[in-house]
Write a protein that binds this DNA or RNA. Structure first.
Length: 583
RNA sequence: GGGGACGUGGUGUAGCCUGGUUUAACACGCUGCCCUGUCAAGGCAGAGACCGCGGGUUCAAAUCCCGUCGUCCCCGCCA
């Protein structure tokens, strides 16, 4: 080993020691005589001082340029009085070089690696091998590594087996579009890359593996977003003989360990649990960011006999009338209020009623339609103080939820509201099992066709299937859907009822899910689990807005890799072997 | 499938709306020289883009129009 220390490992404890550092020349400051080098490796920077009296080092260092790879041998010494650099971890010491060796040269780079914050992402991705040299990416990749290893440690200690499931699997034309891989041996047939190891992990439970986890790659051929890549990594977990609570506690334990390991304040567990119906009412979203107050309230009762028809009519007709307080929003201008109304309309609202509260009075074009009793009831319900504003929407429940939820997010952004805390986890549970598809005249799985219904809702299969609540749940952190999971159907007859409502014929069901349906008949234990997005979790922990910042080699929004230039064309010979033709 | 933003030396931007004194400006970086305590080092000198690509309008286009390619954001989609 050439190296004795990492750059940022040297400290005052090493004063007087002979050390050898290896790294990249980040910058050099040539004073004609004495010359300073900032040497960088994965850990950080160390200042190297080259004095003219050290002949070999002084001559050699003259050739050094930015990003040259160098080896420095020298003595650690305390920096002279007044020359410490508090901004640097190693700022109290420096290495007096006795030997300087250039291990490799470098042409001038397209951008400076030391700070890439001003470099366009396009350039960074094209030269990802240089971008990954930056402190930002070193930090992100190392943090992701720590998250992954903490997760592994947690599951290992709790009796989980890490089991790999296949990457070449079969297409199930459900859900997202599959990435397909043509088979050479079976012309005309295709493998599919897994959208998730779902069926395999359930089968592992039926195999008696009892507890499984995997940091699994999942693939989806859908359009990309800041939080979506064609391939992503999920922390995939499945457990036998468990109910919802057991899965929740397991995931909470994992998150607590991850946040502790990555230097955060201890998380408060258990996380709060909300029914799906409840979050939709209170936040207008199934993944609310509850770091912010703004809660939506049902205020239909207040307006049942109101003279304000816009609200009274819907209230009488059993539609939803809901109000939301926004702190400090009385300062929002009339023009801005009109914009917010427009915003609500683009999200499905027919209109939006708003009231600003100032000096005990309500201010709004529609204020005159409210009685004092209604106003005070509204203030009491929403908790609006002077200086706040209240927004009221009326329509079908799901429509009000959608635009009030969108408005809530918009207000948080526009008013630049301060979050109440750093991390806000919650469980959203009891998602509807089925979703009516009017155009196809059938029900479809709201999330996952293998989810178990709530026991008390099973009679609804025969009366009102759309109302069946399920053991499907999500874990939400700061408004981001982190994990999704469920207690599965381990009984074939319930599973068949669900599949029937989805209008799958026996043959169809067998074709899509055959292996799982068959396995369910062979002594399937009660089981459940979840998949948690490692990329999203890492991005949140790194304070990054895009998961591309925590993936070493991500794709652009058109699913290309700017560095390797994939996808690319292949040779005719390859196509022939696969019996494929291009356009 | 749809909507929006952007594309100017190596990098990041200004200029574009209101075409012509722009031989396209600034900062960082780069090259050379000077300088023995800098760490956003400093000083002097210098090289480097014809404005993503194609077409059109015009006496004249980085600037206006159309198309195209690329990047980013959003809707759809993502069981």
């Amino acid at each position: 080993m050439m190296r004795t220390h990492y750059c940022s490992d040297i400290s005052e404890n090493d004063i007087g020691k002979q050390v050898t550092l290896c790294g990249w020349v980040q910058s050099w400051r040539d004073h004609g005589g004495v010359l300073f080098i900032d040497l960088r490796d994965r850990t950080g920077l160390a200042q190297v001082v080259v004095d003219p009296t050290e002949k070999q080092a002084f001559d050699a260092v003259q050739q050094a340029r930015s990003e040259y790879v160098a080896l420095v041998r020298g003595t650690v010494r305390k920096r002279p009085e007044g020359y410490a650099n508090a901004a640097l971890k190693t700022g109290n010491v420096e290495v007096g070089a006795s030997e300087f060796r250039i291990l490799n040269t470098s042409k001038p780079l397209p951008f400076e690696v030391s700070d890439t914050s001003a470099i366009s992402e396009e350039t960074r991705l094209k030269y990802r091998y240089l971008d990954l040299r930056s402190p930002r990416m070193h930090r992100n990749i190392a943090l992701r590594h720590l998250v992954a290893q903490t997760v592994r440690g947690y599951f290992n200690r709790n009796g989980f087996l890490e089991i790999e499931t296949p990457i070449l699997t079969r297409s199930t034309p459900e859900g997202a579009r599959d990435y397909l891989v043509p088979s050479r041996v079976h012309p005309g047939k295709f493998y599919a890359l897994p959208q998730s190891p779902q069926m395999f992990k359930q089968i592992l439970m039926i195999s008696g593996m009892d507890r499984y986890y995997q940091l699994a790659r999942a693939f989806r051929d859908e359009d990309l977003r800041a939080d979506r890549q064609p391939e992503h990594t999920q922390i995939d977990v499945e457990m036998s003989f468990v109910g919802e609570e057991d899965i929740f506690r397991t995931a909470e334990g994992m998150m607590a360990e991850v946040f502790k390991a990555t230097g955060q304040e201890p998380l408060q567990t258990p996380f709060p649990e909300y029914d799906f119906a409840d979050v939709m009412l209170r936040y207008g979203s199934d993944k609310p960011d509850i770091r912010f107050g703004l809660e939506i309230r049902d205020c239909a009762k207040i307006f049942l006999s109101s003279g304000f028809k816009v609200l009274a009519e819907p209230a009488k007709n059993g539609l939803a009338v809901r109000a939301m307080r926004a702190d400090g929003a009385a300062a929002v201008s009339r023009t801005e209020m009109d914009k917010l109304t427009e915003f609500a309309k683009t999200n499905g609202a027919k209109g939006l009623v708003w009231l600003k509260f100032k000096d005990g009075k309500a201010e709004s074009p529609s204020a005159k339609f409210f009685t004092d009793v209604e106003l005070s009831a509204l203030r009491e319900l929403t908790g609006a103080k002077d200086g706040d504003a209240v927004f009221i929407g009326a329509d079908k429940p799901e429509i009000v939820a959608a635009f009030m939820g969108a408005l809530r997010k918009e207000l948080i952004a526009r008013l630049k509201l301060k979050p109440s805390r750093k991390w806000a986890f919650l469980w959203v549970k009891h998602f509807p099992l089925l979703e009516w598809k009017p155009e196809e005249n059938r029900y479809d799985a709201a999330h996952n066709p293998f989810t178990a219904p709530l026991e008390e809702d099973i009679p609804l299969f025969d009366t009102d299937p759309g109302k069946i609540r399920s053991h499907q749940f999500d874990l939400v952190l700061n408004g981001v859907e982190l994990a999704s999971g469920s207690v599965r159907n381990h009984r074939r007859e319930i599973q068949e009822k669900a599949l029937n409502l989805m209008k799958y014929s026996k043959e169809d069901a067998a074709l899509r899910f055959g292996m799982l349906l068959d396995a369910l008949e062979c002594g399937a234990p009660p089981h459940g689990g979840f998949g948690l997005g490692l990329d999203r979790l890492s991005a949140l922990r790194c304070g990054e807005d895009s998961i591309r910042e925590v993936i070493a080699f991500p794709k652009t929004s058109t699913a290309t890799c700017l560095m390797s230039e994939s996808p690319n064309v292949v040779e005719d010979k390859q196509l022939k072997e696969l019996r494929l033709k291009t356009l």
